[in-house]
Simulated assay, not measured.
Amino acid sequence: MGKKKKEEKKEKARKKEHAAIGPADVSGAIVQAARSIRTVLSRNLLSSGLYAGQDGVMLALAEGGGMTAGALAARLGVKAPTMTRTIGRLEAQGFVERRPDTTDGRLTVVDLTRAGSDSLEKIAQACDLSERQALEGLSEKEVRTLLKLLRTVDGNLRGVVVQDGDKAVAEEF
């Protein structure tokens, strides 16, 4: 086969490869991967008595200390009514408690209870197991590349320019 024929064949293969990616393929794959890891994480959290979404609240409280429901909602990117329901469930399970803010009595602060603090190690183990399952078969370099690509996609969607890990805020949604 001549050089020109090989080049034409390569070009056809390249066009076919790009044409095979439809407009919803990337977003569909990202959404499906997110759902799958969330399902696996939910399954891995069962032994700690937590449900999907509750782990994020617990980890945010562990990292940031006592927070208002509004601050938690903003930090986790959920609506206030959703956060209020989640806090109510966590409180009923004995993982968190609500108390008046020490500086502003009009505010209520949510904080981890002893049982909540004790469950943090189980949450970390469930997250670690889920991540290991999700990344099985990928090299460290591939994982770094995946993280970079996902951060770029997220930044694009948030209106943030991301370059080599540095973020320049353009417009937040």
Rank of each mutant, 00 (worst) to 15 (best):
A20K: 15
L45H: 04
L90N: 01
R132C: 03
E63R: 13
V40M: 06
V162G: 07
D164N: 15
G2D: 14
E121P: 00
G155A: 08
G49Y: 02
H18C: 12
G64T: 03
T86F: 04
K9H: 07
V169K: 08
V143M: 05
K12D: 11
A126V: 03
E140Q: 13
G88S: 11
E131K: 05
L46S: 13
G77V: 04
Q32A: 15
V26W: 06
S130A: 15
I123Y: 00
A20P: 01
L138H: 09
V169M: 03
A20Y: 10
R106Y: 09
V26D: 07
K79H: 09
T68F: 01
F95W: 04
E171W: 04
T82L: 08
F95S: 02
L61C: 08
L147N: 07
C127R: 11
T108N: 07
D25I: 10
S117H: 13
L150K: 11
C127H: 12
G137V: 05
E121V: 13
P23C: 02
M1P: 14
M1S: 12
T102P: 02
F173N: 13
F173E: 14
E136H: 05
K15M: 10
R132W: 01
R158C: 01
A24V: 14
D101T: 01
E136G: 01
D104G: 02
A60L: 08
K12L: 15
A20G: 03
A29G: 07
A74M: 08
Q125W: 03
Q54E: 15
G56R: 12
D118K: 12
R114C: 03
Q32N: 12
S48K: 03
L120T: 00
A168Q: 10
L150A: 12
A34P: 00
Y51M: 09
